[in-house]
């Protein structure tokens, strides 16, 4: 280790469900270089100080969405956040807000997975189509209508950012609604009316009070707040017009 080695203090929220009553903070002094991410800082702690430190990661390049944590209170992907940007101050890393902690920095995402399933995240064709009818043709315009909402990597940072999800964990939440919108906007899909039941339900879009922080923290510029907002309008239309059209959403 050269003399000029820089050392940053990393404060980590630790929680071991087998021995701890509640989470507590522990500080580690981590030598780092300018190219080290916060994730690498955590890995250093695991390799050199405490092998039991638990956190999720995989790709190290902001694509798998598994390394989200609160970094100085802000939901971020730890693999694309750099220690040098915090030095010489201490940096605090904690499990993502609004989720139950499983161990250390790992949260329980089962509620989110259920929500993802509930929105029917796949194309449900308007009408049956046979192979000899050939492929679907989509214009650039039709493609642009939904492409932005396909970029979600399910990192759930938007949930950690959403005060309404924090208050009501039943709220379907930003990413699931963005994905729902992605399928509704796809010209090949015909299930918007079916999905409306969820959009318009008490768990649906009207939990949102237009805070917009979800879109701010989203590392993929999905803009989930926009998807939620558009679907508020859709749900309001459905609410008032459902008696006029034969095929409304929910009853």
């Amino acid at each position: 280790m050269p003399d000029s080695q820089k050392i940053i203090e990393i404060e980590v929220l630790r929680y071991n469900p087998e021995s701890d009553k509640e989470p507590h903070l522990e500080v580690y002094k981590v030598p780092f270089s300018d190219d080290m991410s916060v994730l690498q800082g955590a890995q250093y702690i695991k390799d050199h100080f405490d092998g039991s430190l638990t956190f999720r990661w995989s790709c190290r390049m902001a694509i798998c969405g598994s390394c989200g944590m609160m970094i100085n209170g802000i939901p971020k992907l730890s693999c694309e956040t750099f220690l040098r940007d915090y030095y010489p101050n201490r940096i605090r890393i904690e499990a993502m807000a609004n989720f139950p902690i499983e161990k250390d920095l790992v949260v329980d995402l089962s509620g989110f997975i259920e929500k993802l399933e509930s929105i029917q995240p796949y194309i449900i064709p308007r009408e049956p189509r046979s192979l000899d009818q050939g492929e679907y043709i989509q214009s650039p315009e039709q493609f642009n209508a939904y492409i932005q909402f396909t970029s979600c990597i399910n990192c759930t940072l938007c949930y950690a950012a959403c005060p309404q999800f924090g208050l009501n964990p039943d709220f379907i939440g930003p990413a699931a609604i963005a994905l729902l919108h992605r399928y509704n906007m796809d010209s090949r899909d015909g299930a918007a009316a079916e999905r409306m039941e969820l959009v318009a339900a008490e768990e649906g879009v009207f939990n949102c009070s237009a805070v917009g922080y979800c879109s701010e923290v989203c590392p993929k510029h999905v803009d989930p707040a926009n998807a939620v907002n558009i679907n508020k309008t859709n749900a309001a239309k459905d609410y008032f017009l459902r008696f006029l059209s034969p095929k409304g959403g929910s009853k």
């Binding site: 969820l198 318009a200 339900a201 008490e202 768990e203 009207f206 749900a235």
Partner: peptide, 16 residues
């Protein structure tokens, strides 16, 4: 899709 969903009455208040 989840069952037992209840439609929210929020659109009335939200529209106003």
């Amino acid at each position: 899709m989840k069952s037992g969903l209840k439609r929210s009455n929020a659109p009335i208040f939200w529209s106003l």
